[in-house]
Amino acid sequence: MDVFYPIQKFSDWLVFEVLTVSKDSHLGEAFSFFVYDSLKIIFLLVLINYFMAVVRYFLPVEKMRDFLVSRKWYGLDYLLASAFGTITPFCTCSSIPLFIGFLEAGIPLGVTFSFLITSPLVNQVAIVLFAGLFGWKITILYVISAILLGVVGGFILNKLKLEKYVADYVWQIRSQKNVIEKTKEKISVLLKSFWFEGWAMTKKIIPYVLIGIGVGALIHGYVPSGLFENYITSENLFAVPIATLVAVPMYANAVGVIPIMQALVEKGIPLGTAMAFMMAVVGLSLPEALILKRVMKIKLLLYFFGITTINIMIIGYLFNLFIR
């Protein structure tokens, strides 16, 4: 049985019985979609944000960095850095400290890029939205693609030997080793603080999630299915590159984009094209480029954006080819 069956029942009851919106109207369709999806996703968010608060307590990013430099990894470090990227929360304002901190610790530039590429694409909220809207199979494929994107991108960037294009002052920063001892807290206190942290996170993103689902619901209810099919089919070879290039300068959080993307896919836009669009919006943006310019010379920035853009297009094509 579907675990979300009670939520479906509740939202049907609320929309069709209590608010007496007709089941067959556009409004009814959009409304029930909105109620069901937002309830389901908020429920999942509460769970996963709690879980992530626990993970972050035991595995802060400083610890990941130390783990990466603890020994020689013979290439496995690209995968590890990407995987770490998936569990760290990412906002563009944390990319600079991470970038400098990784390099300062002696992590290779390419491995640092692996982290930087994957981190904005996958986080717990994106995973919940994906799973809630697309199901687990697509979610797992998405996460694997995002990790591959980081690993391959980082590997290529490393091979290009671009260290000289990192802003010079970055190499001069030296850090003292600082161990922050954690005060021993009682389990009950910890569990409570995890709850607070997780809930604070959930509360912060709920508005964005609701806006995203709201727009998705409108598309779901009002846009006739098949509208896009004449323009954007998976046979149209230019769709993926155009969608990607349009999206690169734009910035939006994964949270807002995923519900809209799901609604569009349902209306006939090929999954790979939508996915490439989303990855480019979330992973690369003009604001991020401006921030990263503080630590990278323009050439490095262009390589980083160029290679990531091409890889995103490849992922888009692969999805269009293999996932129906």
């Binding site: 960095r65 400290p97 400098i100 901190g101 600082n178």
Partner: peptide, 25 residues
């Protein structure tokens, strides 16, 4: 950011008392 890195940290914000990080995040 430089100050953060010098303290060996990568997450922000940080509360520092007498040059010792007390709260991270």
């Amino acid at each position: 950011v430089q100050k953060l890195i010098e303290l060996g940290l990568m997450s922000s914000p940080v509360l520092v008392m007498n040059d010792k990080p007390v709260i991270v995040g």
